[in-house]
Write a protein that binds this DNA or RNA. Structure first.
Length: 948
RNA sequence: AGGACCAUAGCUCAGUUGGUUAGAGCGCCACGUUGACAUCGUGGAGGUCGGCGGUUCAAAUCCGCCUGGUCCUACCA
């Protein structure tokens, strides 16, 4: 083995081998275990969130596979409607100077397919680099033929059941992208805005209670005035009671609109009167429904003012009895231009009472960044009420369990207040809606045009045109768990792997995806999509900021693995920016944070870092320091393995059944291994990857390396040691290491495999050429091998060694200087332990002599430490400086005093003694005894030295 | 406005059902190339567990209030 750990040399090699050998496919044996990857955007690239999530899924998958489960990690990608369409649109614009409309629908979608073929491999290559043991032979895409079929089927069935309907409704409209988007795709941002108070003249000469000839309404959106259908007042409001049923003359437009009573009007706010624009405001739409007002749309698809308004009734039917004329001055103006003009005109007409500045929230499209407009369009909806009920029940009754539990509340609160889901999108990239229209606008829903004709008895020559819209991306990804397994066919895979075991996902898509998967899957398979949902937080930068291109703090997981030079990193972070003016500051910050660029750390170290930070229910501040630390940990494991191999390769490790004798240290490390195995397994079962990784780290570094390897040296290197004991130690070294590697494998697949290949043959677990750690058994703790006595003995041994190291450090004795030390005052067992462990003590504490002193009174002047009741003495003669020792003792006495004080206070408290359980009280008494004895000794020692 | 989560060492975080001398890693200080490892070893410094109050014999841990932070939902005519 090389002297230092060099991940890049082993990682690619191993991934390829595993894949070629078919180890990622389900074994076909054992209890099924399955995970569906949340499909990343097909043309996207791997970000830190993916890397984190994939690490968790891979760790679970490898662990369960080793446990003998029939394991499937299903892989695939999402067509990601809007995101992908926009990306290609920009690309085509940049490269060819054409819009998608220049190309036309077919040519444009061809371009997207082209781009998908070109770039679709990027994310999957990165997934491989992370070590993801997904079954590539089953890779799926949300727009492949099978999915196309599943989507058609679901749509048609839902329609036939009356759960999908089409209608003219107010939706969130993106005037840039020209499509409806769902509530979830709207991002509300706080902004400072203006609040205009307008006077609306009362018609027919009526006046208010106060004698005014007008009502005052306030709005942040003056341009919607053109579409007002009414003014509402609260039915309880005495100021306006007499005006209900009367009219106002809508300024600028001249339309007569009624004054209606509706509780939406808040008496406390403003004048208590509110303008109602049902076609341009969600609240007003509801008022419109209650008061049967007409819908008056004044915007085009681009949110530009129309020449004539469009009017509809609440069923979306055109109305003809309303004057649709609009002032020509505004036609063709954008909503923002129109706003200014209307305010100016109102002011000129003396109808602007006052203006104030307010903070308000504006809806923005999370893709386009444009202000979203409530807009009246024909859309397809899923009626969710009856789908939501079983979906709520499934979580309530425990068929689906969220980890951590508190996300269930988030789920419930959303599900219980669910609006119908608008599933149509006015895009070109996606699943086209399987609905056809005849010349009269009648709609026929079927899987194919032929089926539509068949089903409705339409003549073959009757022209039909398919709906232009596509489905919301989440409609198809909602079918992910069963669609990937072959539904609607009754496949064996579906039978075996559905419901899936666990969904690993971020809390941010519980609504988008998780909830919809649960609803659709229950409806179509009668099964839950997954039994558990492990919800993780967001990966943030070291300061806790969201990583984003515009902030320039993005880390690419692949750069952390392979390393990247400073210049490349700066270029990556500042290139191709939406806001190029930020480039300079970002470059500066990057140079400051990574003056040398980023070193390579390897996949295993990155994975281990993610796992160690995977605390439940909390965002992760990615810590570069930890990444360095775990790279060092890999190196530690690597070097420990080198030591083992150096001492075991070509040696008798007891594999042939010859006699072996296990030393105390051997029995101890075996015992601790069992406990660690149990600990790691339990942590994995609880999704506590931080605990699992820490248990492994501590065992490997603090016990196996720091103590066991050191304790093995006296046995292996001492000529007096018996061959049986040397065999025993070699065998233990090798077997414990082999078990460690199996334990580490789900978390650190590469380094564990690489080392295992050399260790397994010595441990007797290697099955021959081509064998892989991946398919070996997960270590099971064996209670019978837990050896408490060995643990106590080793603790004693460590105590003595640490005591002597302590004395050395405190008294400035060189670590390498051989010392003579004495043990005294202990009991018979201490004495036995001394005899049994003399060579270990000598080697690890660098002692030239270690003797038992029968009569403590004969002790020479010495620096002293306690191990239990026993004293460890390092005679001072010629060694130490008196003042240093006195200071050390004084400090120690002080420490004891504080502890004693605390306990005495506790025991002096009558209620404590009376009410606390006897065991707790006794424990305190024992502690007090020990501490007091220590203190007496220290004081004695102090006085003795002081008297010199 | 309602809700959720968080606040423990300089930094990033553990702390299971209340009883620990409150832990780890990184960083810091001192010493050290002893035949796996300087990507290392040994020893050490560093915390009134955000604040106040309550329950209890006993609170980092349970309850209430407050402060600060993150996020979600809703509303803002």
């Amino acid at each position: 083995m090389d002297k230092t750990y060099q991940p890049e040399q082993i990682e690619n090699r191993w991934y390829q081998r595993w894949e070629e050998d078919g180890h990622f496919a389900p074994s076909g044996e054992g209890e099924p275990y399955s995970i569906m990857i949340p499909p990343p955007n097909v043309t996207g690239s791997l970000h830190m969130g993916h890397a984190f999530q994939d690490t968790i899924m891979d760790t679970l998958t490898r662990w369960r596979r080793m446990q003998g489960r029939n394991t499937l990690w299903q892989v695939g990608t999402d067509h990601a409607g809007i995101a992908t369409q926009m990306l290609v649109e920009r690309k085509v614009a940049a490269e060819e100077g054409k819009s998608r409309h220049d190309l036309g629908r077919e040519a444009f979608t061809d371009k997207i397919w082209e781009w998908k073929h070109e770039s679709g491999g990027h994310i999957t290559r990165q997934l491989r680099r992370m070590g993801a043991s997904v079954d590539w032979s089953r890779e799926r895409f949300t727009m492949d033929d099978g999915f196309y079929k599943a989507v058609q089927e679901v749509f048609v069935q839902l329609f036939d059941k009356g759960l999908i309907y089409r209608g003219k409704r107010l939706v969130n409209w993106d005037p840039t992208l020209h499509t409806a988007i769902s509530d979830l795709e709207v991002e509300n941002r706080d902004q400072q805005g203006q609040f205009w108070h307008f006077r609306y003249p009362l018609a027919d000469g009526v006046t208010t209670e106060a004698g005014l000839d007008h009502l005052v309404v306030a709005t942040t959106r003056p341009e919607t005035l053109l579409g007002d259908s009414a003014v509402a007042v609260n039915p309880e409001d005495p100021r306006y009671a007499s005006l209900i049923g009367k009219f106002v003359d809508l300024p600028l437009v001249g339309r007569r609109i009624p004054i209606v009573a509706d509780e939406h009007a808040d008496m406390e706010k403003g004048s208590g009167c509110v303008k109602i624009t049902p076609a341009h405001d969600f609240n007003d739409y509801e008022v419109g429904k209650r008061c049967e007002l007409p819908l008056i749309n004044v915007f085009s698809r681009d949110a530009v003012i129309l020449e004539r308004a469009e009017t509809f009734d609440l069923q979306g039917r055109p109305l003809s009895d309303i004057d649709t004329s609009l002032p020509s001055a505004y036609a063709g103006l954008s909503r923002f231009e129109a706003r200014e003009r209307i305010v100016a005109d109102m002011e000129a007409a003396g109808l602007l009472e006052r203006t104030e500045t307010v903070n308000n929230t504006l809806p923005f499209g999370d893709r386009s960044g444009d202000v979203i407009e409530p807009y009246l369009t024909d859309q397809w909806f899923v009626a969710v009420e009856n789908l939501a009920k079983p979906a709520i029940a499934a979580v309530e009754n425990g068929d689906i369990e969220f980890v951590p539990k508190n996300y269930e509340n988030m789920y419930f609160s959303w599900m219980r207040d669910l609006q119908d889901w608008c599933i149509s999108r006015q895009l070109w990239w996606g699943h086209r809606i399987p609905a056809w229209y005849d010349a009269d606008g009648n709609v026929y829903v079927a899987r194919t045009e032929a089926e539509a004709r068949d089903k409705h008895g339409l003549p073959a020559d009757m022209p039909l045109t398919q709906d232009e819209d596509v489905l919301d991306t989440w409609f198809s990804s909602g079918l992910w768990t069963f669609g990937t397994l072959g539904w609607p066919e009754k496949t064996e895979a579906l039978e075996t792997f559905h419901p899936t075991s666990v969904l690993v996902t971020g809390f941010d898509i519980i609504f988008f995806w998780v909830a919809r998967m649960i609803m659709l899957t229950l409806e179509f398979t009668g099964e839950v999509p997954f039994k558990q949902v492990y919800v993780h937080g967001l990966v943030r930068d070291g300061q806790g900021n969201k990583m984003s291109k515009s902030k320039g703090n993005v880390l690419d997981p692949i750069d952390l693995i392979d390393g990247i030079g400073l210049e490349s990193l700066v270029e990556k972070r500042t290139g191709n920016m939406m806001q190029p003016q930020k480039a300079k500051a970002i470059a500066k910050a990057t140079r400051q944070e990574f003056p040398e660029g980023i070193e390579s750390h390897g996949t295993d170290a990155l994975r281990f870092t993610f796992l160690s930070q995977a605390t439940t229910g909390r965002d992760i501040k990615f810590d570069m320091g930890r990444l360095d630390g775990y790279r060092n940990f890999c190196n530690k494991l690597w070097n420990a393995s080198r030591y083992v191999l150096m001492n075991a390769e070509g040696q008798d490790c007891g594999a042939d059944g010859s006699e072996v004798e296990l030393s105390l240290a051997d029995r101890w490390i075996i015992s601790r291994l069992q406990q660690t195995e149990a600990q790691v397994t339990r942590a994995m079962e609880e999704y506590r990857f931080d605990h699992a990784s820490q248990a492994l780290y501590e065992f490997i570094w603090n016990e196996y390396c720091d103590w066991y390897l050191e304790l093995s040296k006296p046995v292996l290197w001492d000529d007096d040691a018996t061959p049986a004991s040397q065999r025993g130690t070699r065998r233990t070294l090798v077997r414990v290491l082999e078990a460690i590697l199996r334990l580490a494998h789900p978390m650190m697949p590469y380094i564990s495999e690489e080392i295992w290949q050399r260790v397994a043959p010595l441990a007797g677990t290697y099955r021959g050429e081509g064998d892989s750690l991946m398919v070996h058994a997960w270590p099971e703790a064996d209670e019978a091998r837990v050896d408490e006595a060995a643990t106590r003995n080793i603790e004693w041994l460590k105590g003595v060694i640490v005591a002597i190291r302590n004395i050395r450090a405190e008294l400035n004795i060189a670590p390498g200087k051989p010392l003579a030390a004495l043990l005294t005052k202990g009991d018979a067992s201490d004495r036995e332990r001394l005899e049994a462990n003399r060579p270990f003590l000598a080697k690890l504490a660098k002692l030239e002599r270690l003797d038992w002193l029968d009569d403590p009174a004969e002790a020479p002047l010495a620096a002293t430490q306690l191990v239990g009741d026993m004293e460890v003495l390092v005679p001072m003669a010629g060694l130490i400086d008196k003042e240093a020792e006195l200071a050390r003792l004084a400090k120690e006495i002080d420490k004891q005093d504080k502890l004693i004080g605390g306990i005495e206070k506790k025991l002096g408290n009558e209620s404590f003694v009376a009410k606390a359980p006897e065991a707790v009280v006794q424990k305190e008494r024992d502690k007090l005894d020990d501490l007091s004895a220590n203190r007496r000794l220290l004081v004695e020692q102090h006085d003795k030295i002081a008297a010199l």
